[in-house]
Amino acid sequence: MEGLPKFSDLPLNKGDPHHSAWGLYGKGDQLGFLNRLTDDVVLEAAKEIKTGVRISLNWPLDAQKDIPFFGRQVFHQHMYNKPPRVVNDDVWTFNSQSSSQWDGLRHFAYQKEAKFYNGVTMDDIHAEGSVVNGIGAWSEKGIVGRGVLLDFHSWRLENNIPYEPFKTGSIPLEQLKAVAEAQGVKIKFGDILIIRSGKAYGYMAAFSELKKDEIAALAKVMPPTFSGVEQSEEVLEWIWNNFSAVAGDQPSFECWPTQKDFMLHEVLLAGWGCPIGELFDLEALSEHCKKAGRWSFFITSEVCNVPGGVASPPNILAIF
């Protein structure tokens, strides 16, 4: 993208946290990397629509049943009738991150500096009436563009590479690039990166096959241990140079807990304003990509319009 600072130029301002790009889109910006999804980028992405096939990437809101990880609240539906009319209403209560989700800019700060995107503080966020960095700002135009699936799971099976979703482990950048090369994917600036870690060994598939006592035991492990994308300068540079958002089927996108002295969440969310999608359902998507012989598609995701919201179900479709 013309005018994009080099990764080596980060942080943009002396004294700001490492790798941060605060002020790139203005001091009061709340869109971050979504500024990369210009009208021209979205118009070009719309050329991916050729057959009209639509595939949801949303897990059910109650996907983690009654024992979600990270101590998050379970989904609950209260349905009631309204006599004397033959009418039903229902009330939903749930944690916005207990199923498929976009992490918003209020979710994760630079831990040492205690600063969110563009230097916003915890006091700023919790001030009465504050909506700064709220995910509702993303709802105006949504997260819409060209999606690219890197089917790491299929590639690793072909190459006899082990993967255990409930153990701390990293997916190296060199392997993700090898997946893209094997699929013949050409990444374009502004793409929405989606990584499939597995089916037989993928997180939600593995989760659904566990017994309740096994899930309860895993949920008690603090911090939780999950496999995911490696923490490295190279991964950060790759994302900086190419993508508008990143997502996967893992609970934390990145390896958890971190294996370095920083977390991708810090830089992506607090440093750049880059949305992180987690727990996406990628099984039907991967099957269609293989059948169609293409791993790029149009993405439309409308986050919930909650002013000051921390995260949101993605309400996401891939369209071919």
Rank of each mutant, 00 (worst) to 15 (best):
P223S: 11
G15L: 07
T300H: 08
E140T: 13
P17E: 06
I195K: 01
G134D: 13
S296C: 05
G293K: 11
W59S: 05
Q73R: 12
P17L: 01
K220M: 12
P5T: 10
I67M: 04
Q250P: 00
S130K: 06
Q111S: 09
N118G: 04
L12F: 11
A217C: 03
E44M: 07
K115P: 00
G147F: 08
S170Q: 13
K291R: 15
G32V: 09
V310H: 07
V91A: 01
K141C: 02
V144F: 13
I239F: 05
W102Q: 03
F226M: 04
S301D: 12
S154Q: 15
A217N: 08
M122N: 09
S100H: 02
E234C: 00
W238E: 07
V310I: 14
A247H: 07
V120Y: 04
Y201T: 14
D103H: 13
N242L: 08
I49F: 02
G184H: 08
D249M: 05
E158D: 14
D89W: 02
R36H: 12
P5R: 10
H265P: 01
G184D: 11
M204N: 05
I187F: 14
P257S: 13
K115C: 04
P17C: 06
L218Q: 13
L279C: 11
V229W: 02
A109G: 02
H18L: 13
P60F: 02
A46D: 02
V41H: 01
A284L: 14
I299A: 05
P68E: 02
L150N: 15
S232M: 04
V185H: 03
G28V: 00
G308K: 13
K65P: 04
T300F: 01
M222K: 09
T51R: 15
E128L: 10
M79S: 14
G32T: 08
W138N: 01
H288L: 01
E181P: 00
D124Y: 04
L210E: 00
H18P: 04
D9L: 08
E283T: 15
N95C: 14
S56D: 10
C255A: 12
F243Q: 02
L4V: 14
P165H: 14
W238S: 07
K27E: 12
F226A: 00
E278D: 11
Q101H: 08
I187K: 12
E237Q: 14
S8V: 09
I276H: 07
S8I: 07
L37F: 08
G32R: 03
V221F: 06
Q64P: 13
F94Q: 06
F33Y: 10
A180V: 08
D62M: 05
W22S: 10
R294P: 05
G3W: 04
L317S: 13
K212A: 15
D40A: 15
P224Q: 13
I161Y: 11
K199Y: 09
N160I: 05
L236Q: 00
Y203Q: 06
S197I: 01
S98L: 00
T258R: 14
